[in-house]
Simulated scan of single mutants.
Amino acid sequence: MNRRNFFKTSLFSTLGIATSGFSALAIPGSWHKASSSRLSLEFAPYPLKLKHAFNLARSSRTTTPDVLVRLHYDGITGYGEASMPPYLGESVESACKFLSKLCLEQFTDPFRIEEILDYVDTVDSGNPAAKASVDIALHDLLGKIMQQPWYKIWGLNPDKAPHTSFTIGIDTPRIIRQKVDEASQYKILKIKMGLGNDQSLVKIIREKTNVPICVDANQGWVNKEKALEMCHWLAEQGCMFVEQPFDKTMIDETAWLSERSPLPIIADEFIQRLPDVSKAYQVYNGINIKLMKSTGMHEAYKMAILAHSLGMKVMIGCMTETSCAISAASQLSPMAHWADLDGNLLISNDPFNGAVVTDGRVIPTSEPGIGLTAFNNAYNIFSEKS
């Protein structure tokens, strides 16, 4: 079933809000300038530099590939991005190749989001982050046309945005302590686990702070009985939930743990797009929605609606991203029980200003679109490629 038919047959397809559109074929180094009644697409690679090495149970890196996107229509510009951690299978090359295939000038009404995104989705399979970059820029553009931020268009209350966690990756005791000090303004810490020294990580953090924690095992646990013991121990340490304890293929073990754990078990790698929400039901207690996997804000909104209807917890997460994608995700955060929107704080070369941390919460700004209040060298990133 293709994306359009799935939405038509879904109970919640009518809950999607019409958003913006875009057009224009573009390739790196040759930016197309369309007439005022059509949209033009630009994109440029922009590697993200991490402040600290990002260590997970199965990988480590100091940079994250990223592609920035701009959509122009009638003098208005919308921004988007594709962040592509290598383990997800996308790259700068694959994203640019996909974006160069788009012939969006066939769409003249920027409000026909279902029609436009259906086209984008069927141009090629996969490429969720590349598709998300267009979706985010599309929302930013249309929000600016309507002169409203998306939380208002969706009817959401920003005061209900949950506290966001700050991620503490697997590292040496000295670096972990340093990261805890850097996270002093946050009310929740997220700990990466899965290498066998999980309890020692928690003990180091507990030497520094008693703030609540959450745990992401990144598919690093393998034994369900030991995982259950760990969940009970973590509950005693002030843990709120455990994210993706087992490999995403270990469905029976995950369901077994979810039934017995004193902590909610949240799906991450298991969850990509809207159809996966139903698959996670009765296997996980909740889902982590990430724009780079959901293909953007439009489908992420529908995923949150469906998860709520099934009685599942909702978390809004992120990759290592600039303030562009973080600001986009912040528009959805009032729909979530938890948020993990610190990706922009983990990099040293963020070209944007957008949603900010206020009393431990990532609050969307009142600026129209996705809420980018300013950008520093973002324009030069594109002009240097022209």
Rank of each mutant, 00 (worst) to 15 (best):
W256V: 02
V242W: 03
I347P: 09
G360E: 05
L274F: 13
K293Y: 07
V283L: 05
N353P: 00
V242L: 12
V314P: 01
D268R: 03
T295P: 04
P334W: 04
I271C: 14
A280L: 10
P275H: 07
T358N: 10
M312S: 06
P262H: 08
N288D: 09
S327Q: 09
R361E: 02
A307H: 05
K290A: 07
D350C: 08
E236H: 14
A307N: 02
N285C: 12
N344R: 00
R273G: 13
I305N: 04
A255G: 06
C239N: 03
P262A: 04
T320E: 14
H298D: 09
R260I: 07
H298C: 14
I305K: 13
A300H: 02
P364N: 09
Q331V: 12
G343K: 01
A336H: 05
V242K: 02
T365L: 11
N349S: 11
A280D: 05
V357I: 15
P275W: 10
K302V: 11
P351V: 12
A307R: 03
A255I: 07
P368Q: 04
T254W: 07
A329W: 06
M312V: 04
P264G: 12
I251A: 02
W256S: 01
A329T: 07
K279S: 14
S323V: 01
P264M: 10
A329N: 11
S258G: 11
R361H: 09
A304F: 03
V242Q: 09
L263I: 14
P262D: 00
M250E: 13
R273S: 14
S258T: 15
P351K: 04
M297Q: 05
N285Y: 06
F246Y: 07
P368V: 03
K313N: 13
A255S: 11
N285Q: 12
D276A: 12
P262V: 05
N344T: 01
Q272D: 15
S294T: 14
G286E: 10
N285D: 15
S294W: 00
I326F: 04
H308C: 04
I271N: 05
E259Q: 15
S278H: 03
A300E: 00
E299K: 10
K293H: 04
A325G: 03
N353A: 15
M315Y: 04
T365Q: 13
C239A: 15
A325D: 07
C318G: 01
N353F: 13
A355G: 11
Q272M: 10
P364D: 05
C239V: 12
I271L: 15
N285K: 03
D359N: 15
L263A: 08
A300R: 06
E259D: 13
E321A: 06
D359F: 01
F241D: 01
R273T: 15
S348I: 07
H298Q: 14
H308P: 06
S348A: 13
Q237G: 08
K313P: 00
K248R: 14
T249M: 09
T249C: 02
R260V: 06
K248M: 12
G238C: 04
K290G: 07
L257S: 11
D268V: 08
L234R: 00
K313D: 06
A307I: 00
V314A: 06
M319C: 14
D350S: 10
G317W: 01
L274S: 02
S261R: 00
